[in-house]
Structure formats: C-alpha cells, structure tokens
Write a protein that binds this DNA or RNA. Structure first.
Length: 665
RNA sequence: GCCGGUGUAGCUCAGACGGUAGAGCGUCCGCCUUGUAAGCGGAAUGUCGCAGGUUCGAUUCCUGUCACCGGCUCCA
C-alpha cells in the first residue's frame, strides 16, 4: 500500500498531508461532526469519496450554503422514500434543494391531503433513525434506463440529458442528471445497516453520509406543480419541506415565518382599518378606508412633488379608449387575454386601459416637438385595469384595478443613457425616504427566448441592452441578469428592495422602448432640421401604489413612521375633565398640519392606551391634572417609552419635527 | 387558468353520529371618572358563502358554484 500526498484546506489555510491509498474523505473529518461532505479539487463529493494523489480537499460544513443544500436534498430523498413506502404507486419527479428547504414532486393517483404530511413525517423519522447510508453508484445510461423503467419521469430526464438538454430539463432537474463533467449518471442507493437496499434514486449527489445526519426537518405544505414547469404538462403533486443543521435553526426559521405572518398586509389592513376587498366588487378590487386613504394621499402628494422636482410634467388621461390605440401601441395582440374585454358602443370598441403609455404618446404627438424640448417628461397616476388570472390575484400585491405612478421620458437616443441613470437615482432616493435601504438591480433582456416574442430589430435590441447594462453597471449596485425577462417592446431594469425582514420585492422598473415611438410615428425636429424618432423610457417608481402600500405595511409591520401614519397623535385624557384641555393641544397640532385624534370614550385611560398601542399610533399624548397645571402633556411612544411633563409648545414641535424629517420613532 | 385546502356573528374561533348554533373581543345601553397595554353589569347580533339534490327534516351528507388561502403557470 503506497502513500498519497494531498492538501487539506480549511478557512484559507493549506496543510499538506500524507495518507494511505484508499483513504476516503471522511477519514480526514472523523472528529468533526459538522462536516458532511467534501470539496475535492473544487468539486462537491460525498465523504465516502476515495482520495487520489495530489487532491486538494476541503470539508463542507452542514451549516454552510452548500452544506445546507446537501442536507436538504438528502432530506428530499428521505421524503421520497417515505412517500413511496406509503403510496407504492407514486412516481418520482424531481426533488431539489431550494432556498430554506426542498421539495419533491410526485405523480400520484390522488393528490396529497395536508393531513398526509404527518404520516409522511412519521415515516421519515423512522428512516432517519435507521441510519441508512447514501451510497453512490455510477451507471451507464442503458443500465439506468433498465433500473428506472418504472419511473417514467426519470427516464425522460435521462433522455433529455442524452440529447444534450439536461440543463433545460427543468429548473432543479440538474440535481438528478446534470453537472457531472463526463456526463456520467449516478444512482444513490439508500442502504440499511445490514446492507440491504431500502430505496434508490437517480441523482447527481452528493449526499449526507447517512440519514442519521439530518438534525431537524419539517414538511411545510403540499401543492401542485407542472412537470418541468410547463403549463402544458401534467401537474404533479409537490411537497415542500424545510431542513436545518440544528433544532434551533429550524425553530428560528419557523419563528421567521410566524413573524412574516404577523406582518401580513391583508391582516394588518383589516386590523388597522386601512382597506378591504369587498366581495361585491370582485376579486382583485380594493377599497381604501379613511386611514388607508391618508397613507395613499401622503404617498401621492410626495411622489407628485418629487416628479415635478425631477423635471416631469403632471398630466392626466382617461381610463378608457377606443381599441385602435392599443393596436397602434402593440399591446393588444400581446395582452388581449389580460385586458378587460371591449365594450361595443356606437360601432366602436372601447377598452379599459391596462397601461398609460399610449395616451402619453398622444400628448407628445399633439403638436410638433423640437429637440430643444427633450427630454420631455410626462407623469400621471394612471388608473389601469388588468384581468389577472383568478389564481394569481391576492391582497394588494396582485390586483385587477391599480394605480400606477407612470412616467415616460421622451429623449433623443443620445440622451437615453443619462436619462436612465437619472431615473435610477430618482427611484433610489425615493425608496430611502420610505425607509427601504437595501437594493439590487435586475436587468431583463431577451436572452435566448424565441425572437418572435419581441418587437424590433436586432440592432435596436443590442443598443438598448447595452445602454441599460451600462447604466446598471454605473449605478454601483449589485446586478442580477434576467435573460428572457424583457418586455416585448424593449429590455428593462427593475429595482429589487429588501424589506425589514429580508424579503425582496420588485418595485420600480425602467424600460427602454423604441417600438412605440415607431408605432406611433413619434418625431422631433433635430438641430439640423431633420425629423428624428425619439426613444421613450417608461418608469414607475412605486410601480403600483396599491402594491407599494402593501409592501410598506409589511415592511413597517403596520407601525408607520409619523409622516405616513394615518393618526400621528392620539390624545388620551386621564379623566373626562381633561378632554377640553387636550382639545386645545390638538388644535395647536392640527394647525401645524398634524393628524390628531382624541379618545373621549368612556373607557379607562389604560384601555385607551392599549387601543392606541394596537392601532400603532406613533405618539400618545396623555394629560391629567398634573399636566394641566404645568401647561404640559405626557408622551408615550409605541415602544412603551414615556416622557412626562413636556410643555405643550415643545410637544407640538417634537411631533412636527418627526413628521418633517420622515424619521421612524 | 390548473391542483389542493378553507368558508359558522364586524373580528378570532368553538360546535353538532342530520332535529335551524355558542365563546371571547368589538358594537349598543347603563354604572364607574380613572396616571401609562383590557373597570363592572346588561342587551342585540347570524339566510352556518350561494344554488340545487338526498331526506319527514340539511348549516351538517352529495353535486355544482362563488370567494378566500397555499402552490404551479403568468405578471406590460
């Protein structure tokens, strides 16, 4: 038996080691229970991987990104084994790790019921207890086809891999067949302690050494999902689960989900009396109550003022138009199924608008335009209607009637890059004022999507994508490519913002459009007297005002900063005799434009505090005998802080200052 | 649009092997007049989502439908 020299790396340090032939990776980590896989020469491997001379080896810890993926993928295997135990006719789809967990798809006669999850979890616990070994076995394609003859979906994946489409098979399918440099297929056998085969699956790996190494998991929900993500394919039954390196990590994750549920804008909207979704109106149609109306109005006033400061002109256009307009814009062939159907009147067909750009084009076109007027910037609150599919509407995030803070910049081609940068900066400043600080950009291009889904020439697209790319690069923000995500008339940049609990939301979009100016025959007279076609740049800052309100409610968990709070100050008299005094204080505040209410109900003062607290009012101003005597009030903040005996004039200033600065309190 | 789940008072929820329902909060009416998260007493409240079917009888069982929720697909 000869010796091998290998290099073991850990946290950047390199250590040369000599080991005997036949040494497997796990032997290097026998005393480190956190290591569940190894990276050998940069490739993730099972701990059972046999080392060769010159290998560079690094342990993969279970709480690292890759370690969690391996844990989760292994847990998916355990779940699939459990499902096939309980439902032997279940056929396997794919089972990749995903953010925070994993799923596995099954073709079953009867969809799973939520109660089935308990049964499956029980079976999984048994499998974990058995300490089954995950054992890797390379197989030739023909062998794999023979072994998996009862798994039609796996056969399909093998076939796709054979034809060189392995990567396209489905998102997540490369954990089954992709990745291996030599295109070799592998099967993972789950072996019991006595060596008997418990279960097997086509899989690239790697996996945990044994099922015992799954510290904590939970099945979350069942759902249907189209095979290979295509609506035309059969729906399989998907089970989502989560798995973590420790019971504590699982508990923390579940707590995070519970926190998100507490912030749900649908729930808070009802509790804070902001808005509702009356059944009588129909799905996706929202009414804003007085308190929600305040938030809307403050946002609208703010964004209108900001647009004007940034060189926009505020305009207004109707909600309805003859359908020819949307044919000219090119929207109608593309979006016919998501626009409300036409109304026939006096021989014409009228449609509710689903976007305002065609109408802004009419304003541009209303007279001749000179290059001296460009950039010409139009902005409005466009009420638009989109017949979103019934399964996607929900809350404020996806509605059928919405208000866009929709703007269009008409520019010369040379001005486009600067205008895009201008718009991106505008958006970022705006989000910061709303307390969102953490962003990244997404650049949506054509990618390899069939060209007939997009309008315009190769050159136009190339130019547009290059300009957006450059503007995005210069922003200094992280940029995520989104090939295939472009709109039919041009590429776009979207700004993704992270909220208080780390979720990302797509907010603003900036789109480069050469198609509509061509379709409408838009022109300007250039310096040399020639007629030229402008470029239009679409941008929406909030996107949809409804949706942005939903995001803000969740971001702030309903506890808005004072400038956005429907009620900024709740006046609380200690006894009835203090009401008049507080009314006088309230009057002074109202005169400063502050929103004040006084609770003069029969409730006890403690109850009034509780109510104001539940309504998440930022400032409670309490007054009793001591305060009256001192011409003062007592502050109570949402977090329970108190500041008593504050002179009235100072109290007014304090609230006014907090509102003016848009700070959170 | 597709798959699954859910639908009982304004809200959160309980309940009945089929005999038309209950709690807490809220609301209303009294009493209490109060110092930093629920004072006390009383009252009213529902086509048990809607429409058919089975049944002597359906809120309960069946079918359809609408709405919502979780996913999938989609998102100008």
């Amino acid at each position: 038996m000869s010796d091998l020299s290998i290099v073991v790396t850990h946290a950047g340090a390199r250590e040369e080691r000599t080991v005997t032939t036949g040494t497997r990776a796990w032997e290097l980590y026998a005393d480190d229970a956190d290591v569940i896989a190894a990276r050998v020469n940069g490739v993730l491997c099972d701990l059972a991987h046999e080392l060769r001379d010159g290998d560079e080896v690094e342990g993969v810890a279970i709480d690292s990104k890759h370690g969690r993926d391996i844990l989760r993928h292994s847990t998916a295997h355990v779940m699939a084994q459990a499902v096939q135990q309980l439902w032997p006719d279940a056929r396997l789809g794919i089972g990749p790790p995903i953010e925070n967990g994993f799923y596995y798809d099954f073709d079953v006669e009867t969809p799973f019921h939520p109660d089935d999850l308990d049964k499956i979890e029980t079976a999984m616990r048994k499998i974990i207890k058995e300490g089954q070994r995950f054992s890797r076995r390379p197989v030739a394609d023909a062998e794999a086809l023979a072994e998996l003859k009862d798994e039609p979906y796996k056969l399909e994946l093998i076939g796709l891999k054979g034809s060189g489409h392995g990567e396209d098979a489905a998102e997540g399918a490369n954990v089954e067949v992709g990745g291996s440099a030599d295109g070799e297929l592998t099967i993972y056998d789950n072996l019991r302690r006595d060596g008997n085969l418990a279960w097997k699956d086509l899989c690239r790996g790697p996996h945990l050494p044994t099922t015992k190494r799954i510290p904590a998991f939970k099945l979350m929900r069942t759902a249907a999902a189209y095979w290979r993500g295509d609506e035309k394919n059969k729906q399989l039954q998907r089970i989502y689960g989560t798995a973590w390196e420790s019971k504590d990590a699982l508990a923390a994750y579940l707590a995070q989900i519970a926190e998100a549920e507490k912030r749900d804008h649908r729930k808070l909207g009802r509790e804070l009396d902001l808005y509702s979704f009356p059944e009588e109106l129909g799905p996706g149609l929202v009414v804003f109550h007085p308190k929600g109306g305040v938030i809307r109005r403050v946002m609208e006033d703010y964004v209108r003022r900001r647009h004007i400061e940034e060189g926009f002109s505020y305009v207004s256009t109707p909600h309805i138009s003859k359908d020819g307009l949307f044919h000219t814009s090119g929207h109608l062939p593309y979006y016919a199924d998501t626009m409300y159907p036409p109304m026939e009147l006096e021989g014409a067909r009228y449609q509710l608008k689903a976007m305002s750009c065609p109408m802004h084009n009419l304003i541009y076109q209303s007279r001749g335009r000179s290059y001296r007027e460009l950039p010409l910037r139009l902005f409005e609150f466009g009420g638009v209607y989109r017949y979103e599919k019934s399964g996607v509407v929900g809350g404020l995030t996806r509605v059928r009637g919405l208000t866009q803070d929709d703007s269009h910049s008409y520019v010369t081609p040379e001005q486009a890059a600067d205008e895009i940068k201008h718009l991106l900066n505008f958006c970022l400043g705006l989000f910061r004022d709303f307390g969102l600080e953490d962003f990244y950009l997404e650049l949506s291009t054509r990618g390899d999507t069939p060209k007939d889904k997009f309008q315009g020439s190769e050159e136009d697209w190339a130019t547009a994508e290059a300009i957006l790319q450059q503007a995005a690069d210069e922003s200094g923000l992280e940029l995520v490519p989104d090939p295939g995500g472009a709109v039919f008339y041009g590429p776009k940049i979207s700004i993704q913002a992270k909220d208080a609990i780390g979720r990302t939301w797509q907010l603003s979009t900036v789109q480069y459009d050469f198609g509509q100016p061509a379709g409408f025959g838009l022109e300007y007279v250039a310096a040399d007297g020639s007629h030229q076609q402008p470029v239009m740049i679409h941008s929406a800052k909030f996107g949809s005002i409804e949706r942005f309100i939903g995001v803000l409610v969740e971001h702030y968990a309903g506890a808005f900063p004072p400038w956005l709070s429907p009620v900024q100050v709740q006046g609380i008299p200690i006894a009835e005799r203090h009401v008049a005094y507080l009314e006088d204080v309230a009057k002074q505040m109202s005169e400063r434009g502050l929103r004040v209410e006084i609770d003069d109900s029969d409730d006890r003062m403690q109850k009034k505090i509780r109510n104001a607290q539940l309504q998440k009012v930022p400032f409670m101003v309490i007054a009793g005998d001591q305060d009256m005597e001192a011409r003062a009030v007592s502050f109570r903040y949402r977090d329970g802080r108190q500041d008593n005996g504050v002179p009235v004039s100072e109290a007014v200033e304090r609230v006014a200052a907090a509102v003016a600065s848009r700070e959170q309190v």
